[in-house]
Design a protein around this nucleic acid. Structure first.
Lengths: 150, 150
DNA sequence: CAGCATCCATGACGATACTG
DNA sequence: CAGTATCGTCATGGATGCTG
């Protein structure tokens, strides 16, 4: 999702990485995992999917609800999601036009998987924050007392 | 995860977005979801977690298996994962040193959630690719025949 | 209302060189 | 072996202005 245009394939170096998980080849040849992350790993995709998961919304509604998103990024991200078949765009021929965005069945599937990750984030981020605190503490200590702890 | 240093809090605009999913507030105040995505949405974190999920590995092993990663990014990403408490770093005092990376219990939890998403990617990415093809087709058609379809 | 086009700042990432 | 430091590049994404 670069600025404006779409990248056809994108570069991807060979990651050998065979037989990682309990199943067969996890990303093997062209690594679908990386492809997916390139898509939904951006700043707004998951937020939009999540929001649309709660019901269809219009462009301006989305813009209002996801405060902080520029309409450039909203538009751009929606287009990418539409292109990927995760979000459907329906144009109501009113005047001025009304555009309704909804999650496709395919997008709904992904959303289901994402929600597990999101739930984990909700419950476990405090522990992550705590771990960060401990880490930074250790770093600071080892920096302020490099040789003699006096 | 910027270049070298760590960002303390990072800017985040208020996303109102209350009561999206079936549960309570999904990202509300400081949006743990975005925090998580900022962490694992990068180019290598998930790959590393996945790889370590298959067993503990040394730095050079990781570097070998994830072909395409620079040792700067590998080191940087591992440090971020360690700081977040998702990966553990154990130093074997041999000579020269041996460093073993492993997934922590917390990281293992996340990995479980991630695998669902990864499995979805593995099985559904072909459909995403197909959707992309259809979309691009539509675009090209509407560009080459703007007014009169002859 | 629902966008697209353009400009520009930041920062993610890769390449390279050096270290305990 | 397992890193750190520095530099350059290019993409991500915000701000602004215009359109059907």
């Amino acid at each position: 999702m670069q600025d404006g245009t779409f990248s056809p394939p994108g570069h991807l170096e060979e990651t050998d990485v065979a037989a990682i998980s309990t199943r067969g080849d996890v990303f093997a040849a062209d690594c679908p995992t990386r492809r997916l992350l390139d898509r939904i790993g951006d700043k707004w995709s998951v937020l939009i999917l999540l929001l649309l998961g709660g019901g269809d919304l219009r462009f301006s509604e989305l813009k209002r609800r996801i405060r902080g998103v520029s309409q450039k990024m909203l538009s751009q991200t929606l287009r990418a999601l539409e292109r990927d078949g995760l979000v459907h765009r329906r144009v109501e021929p009113t005047v001025p036009v009304t555009v309704i965005y909804s999650v496709t069945p395919l997008g709904g599937e992904l959303l289901g998987a994402l929600r597990l990750m999101i739930d984990w984030a909700e419950t476990r981020m405090p522990e992550v924050a705590a771990a960060q605190g401990r880490y930074d503490q250790r770093i600071n200590l080892s920096h302020s007392a490099p040789h003699a702890p006096n």
